[in-house]
Each structure stands twice: as C-alpha cells, then as structure tokens.
C-alpha cells in the first residue's frame, strides 16, 4: 500500500513541531514552563507515533504511542510538577543563560545533525525517511541544553527530552524497536526519574539549593 501523501505531510509537521519545541526548551528560563514544554513535546511525539502507526499499519506502534502518551504527557510531568511544588522551586529561573548564543550554537548543531544523517536517510525505506536527521538534532539539542543549564531540574528535563529524540528516531527510521525493548527503555526512564527525585531532596538537604554550581568540588587541581 503506497502511503497516502497527507499522512507523510503530517509526520513531517510533527517532526518540525518536535524540533521547534526543542528550541523552545533551549530558550526557556523558567523551570515550570520547561516542564510544560516537555509535556507538549511528549504529546507531539505520541501523536506522530500514532500517525506512523496508521500509515505503516504496524499495529504495535499504537501501543508505543499509548505508552508515550501515558508516560511523557501525564506521568513524568506530573512527577516533575509534584517535585517542583514540594521542593518549592516554582519560580526558579536560570539566570546564567546566554539565550542568543545558545540559539546560534543550536542552529549549528541542527546543520551538523542533518549532515550526519544524510547517508542514512537515503537508505531508509520508511515513510518518514527525512525525519531521522530531526531525531538526531533533537538528541543533540537536548544535550546542549544539559550542558548550558545550572539547575538540577532543567538538566533532568534535558535528559528526558533526549530520550524523546531517541524514541522519535526509533519510530521514524524503523517503525519502532521490538516491544520488549521499548518496555524496558520506558521502565528505565521512569525509574531514572524517580531516582532523580530522591536525588533532588538529597542535594537540597546537603546544599540548601538545587543549583549545581555547588557540585563542582570534585575535580583535579
């Protein structure tokens, strides 16, 4: 069955939105808004997975779309919101962040990702061939976000956004990994977030803030 044109357009739209949300996260100072953007990115991811599932007829992708909806739109943002409330960091902002410079680096990262993905995209037979570059770009942008942030929670959101990019890469290039792997990855992400939640309390108990600049004592002099 040749894929209908409109659905491939929709997947590309989803990919573009995903990339856009990555940039939005990169330029967002407020932690609360970051969590909301993360939930939005999860929603885009889930919808585009469902569209890929519909187009390709790969029924197990519906399950992974549902899984990412549950995990990334509801469960993880809910956990993060609760953490923010309990840690009382609702109004925290990233103060040391040079947004224009970060955006410029971000654009370079996207170009690099597309160049790297070029040979692979040509081999892809999937409906969504050109999206693998976007997936790689989202991964690298999240990486950039983790490097530039000073607050523990924003680093973690960068970490989770990176997983979103990987997930999108898996669906767009290969119609998803085998189910057992996907479940394992989802479990790891969930447990990881919970452990980080425990961590936040340990960090705050020890340093009285979630600023990571306190965590720079262990290094070679």
């Amino acid at each position: 069955m040749p894929p209908p044109n409109w659905s491939s357009q929709l997947i590309h739209l989803g990919a573009a939105l995903l990339l856009l949300s990555s940039f939005a996260m990169l330029s967002q100072r407020r932690i609360l808004s970051l969590v909301n953007l993360f939930a939005l990115q999860g929603a885009v991811l889930s919808v585009s997975t469902a569209i890929v599932a519909y187009t390709s007829g790969a029924s197990h992708l519906y399950a992974s779309a549902a899984l990412s909806l549950l995990l990334k739109v509801f469960l993880l943002p809910w956990i993060l919101h609760r953490l923010i409330v309990r840690l009382n960091v609702r109004w925290d902002t990233e103060t040391q962040l040079n947004i224009p410079a970060t955006m410029l680096v971000g654009i370079l990262v996207v170009v690099f990702a597309f160049a790297l993905a070029q040979p692979i995209a040509q081999l892809s037979s999937a409906v969504t061939r050109s999206t693998i570059g976007i997936a790689l770009a989202v991964v690298l942008l999240s990486f950039l976000m983790m490097i530039t942030r000073r607050k523990a929670i924003s680093q973690v959101i960068g970490f989770l956004a990176m997983e979103n990019g990987l997930f999108f890469g898996a669906t767009s290039a290969t119609y998803g990994m085998p189910m057992v792997v996907e479940l394992g990855v989802a479990l790891d992400v969930l447990v990881g977030t919970l452990i980080l939640g425990v961590f936040f309390f340990q960090i705050r108990e020890q340093f009285d803030s979630l600023d990571l600049q306190h965590l720079e004592r262990l290094k070679e002099d």
Partner: peptide
Amino acid sequence: YRTAASIEAAWKYFI
C-alpha cells in the same frame, strides 16, 4: 553516605 562529595559524585555518575 549522603556527604556533599558523595552526592556530587553520584550526580556526575548519573548524568
């Protein structure tokens, strides 16, 4: 051990 250094080490390890 929940010392400052051990929390920093664990955070680095995790990230």
